[in-house]
Computed example of a mutant assay.
Amino acid sequence: MQETRLDLARIRAARRVIDPLFLDTPLYRCEALEPGLGCAVSIKLETANPVRSFKARGTEVVASLLADNGSQAVVCASAGNLGQALAWSGRGRGLDVTVVASRFATAAKLDRIRALDARLELVDGDHEMARDRAAAIARRDGIRLVEDSLDLETCEGAATIGLELMDSAPSFDTVLIALGGGALATGVGHVVKAMAPEAEVICVQPLGAPAMTHSWRQRRVVTTGRTDTIADGVAARCPIPAVLDDLLLVADDAVLVQEASIIAGMRLLLDYAGLVVEPSAALGIAAILEDRDRFAGRHVVTIVCGSNVDVEAYHHWVGAAPVRRSSTRGS
């Protein structure tokens, strides 16, 4: 494999500074899902932790390095999950954390950022506007700007999930990874391709937020003017060139899925796995639903990456009635 920015030795070292609360997360075969999907499905569950997403694996590495270097403050832009994670990791290491987010971000995520003692600044635009504002704060105050996916700590922290897949999973054919900024996809993808190159790495993005997928397909950065998806955690418009370069080396495919499939995936994870997840976490299941023939008879691992979802929105999308068993069977 050609060289990415990531390094296996640093990824292994990252495990030593990440709080054990975020490590060795459940990985299990979910047989109840399989009749409706037509393939063997294993779930890597990244929601059973204090911030209910995988993001703290990266922020633990960032915060540890900052604290060791005597830094006192840090800022990031976030759709919600990174902000929670950085607030949690920073609070534990005595860092003053500022999070910039869109005021249209999920209310539950914003409330949790505040509850973790971070300073929250809201902008009247999308995540890209929040990124610009966070960068301005970093310049003004002379503090570290954490840029998710660009900063290697965020990618290599996420990559520890890949180490756990390699250590714990029986042989699998495919790993399905939610694709937004790219930290999760490049991190896990790097480890999988380094240690099990025959396994297929497929990234999944909503049709309404396709910038990174278009970029991967065209092998150049493609930006979009807007996003339109319920999967706010992956709703990026402006891919980072260095991250795309890494993704081109580790991803075998990048696919787009419809909103209806994301919702159906959330329903299936509730009804057959007992999991309440945010839309981004259902992207892997959505990909199987949209192309059952591709995955038929294969062993697929999907990373359930977050469960920070507004309760009212969740009920609106998923509803209260269970999915009928017959409705999930493949055609």
Results as ranks from 00 to 15, higher is better:
Ser53Glu: 10
Lys55Gln: 07
His214Arg: 09
Gln258Ala: 11
Ala115Asp: 01
Gln258Leu: 13
Thr227Arg: 10
Asp151Arg: 08
Ile137Trp: 08
Gly142Pro: 10
Glu31Tyr: 12
Ile288Leu: 13
Leu95Glu: 03
Gly189His: 01
Leu248Ser: 01
Leu283Gln: 12
Asn49Phe: 03
Asp19Glu: 14
Val192Tyr: 07
Gly92Arg: 06
Gly38Leu: 11
Leu37Tyr: 14
Gln258Arg: 12
Ala273Ser: 11
Asp151Leu: 12
Glu31Gln: 14
Arg52Glu: 04
Val61Tyr: 00
Ala260Gln: 11
Asn69Asp: 15
Ala321Phe: 13
Gly319Lys: 08
Ala254Trp: 05
Ile240Tyr: 02
Arg5Trp: 14
Pro170Arg: 14
Gly306Met: 15
Asp173Thr: 02
Arg267Trp: 08
Ile113Gly: 01
His315Tyr: 13
Leu122Asn: 04
Met1Lys: 15
Ser64His: 06
Thr186Arg: 01
Gln84Ile: 03
Ala32Val: 05
Val204Phe: 14
Ala158His: 04
Val304Met: 07
Ala282Ser: 08
Cys305Gln: 11
Leu116Tyr: 06
Gly157Ser: 10
Glu153His: 14
Ala108His: 07
Thr106Trp: 05
Leu152Gln: 06
Ala134Gln: 01
Leu23His: 15
Gly189Lys: 02
Asp68Trp: 13
His127Ala: 00
Asp151Tyr: 12
Arg144Gln: 09
Gly306Asn: 13
Arg91Leu: 01
Ala13Val: 03
Ala63Pro: 06
Pro20Leu: 14
Ala40Ser: 13
Thr47Ile: 12
Phe172Gly: 02
Gly94Val: 03
Ala107His: 09
Lys44Thr: 10
Pro279Trp: 09
Pro35Ala: 05
Asp253Tyr: 12
Ser327His: 14
Gly157Ala: 04
Gly182Tyr: 04
Leu165Lys: 01
Pro206Asn: 14
Asp232His: 12
Ala159Asn: 02
Leu268Thr: 03
Asp232Pro: 10
Arg103His: 11
Ala178Asn: 04
Thr213Tyr: 13
Ser261Tyr: 07
Ile43Pro: 05
Ser168Pro: 14
Val191Arg: 06
Arg292Thr: 01
Gly92Met: 10
Val300His: 04
Asp7Asn: 07
Asp7Tyr: 06
Gly80Ile: 04
Leu247Glu: 00
Gly181Trp: 07
Lys109Glu: 09
Glu290Lys: 07
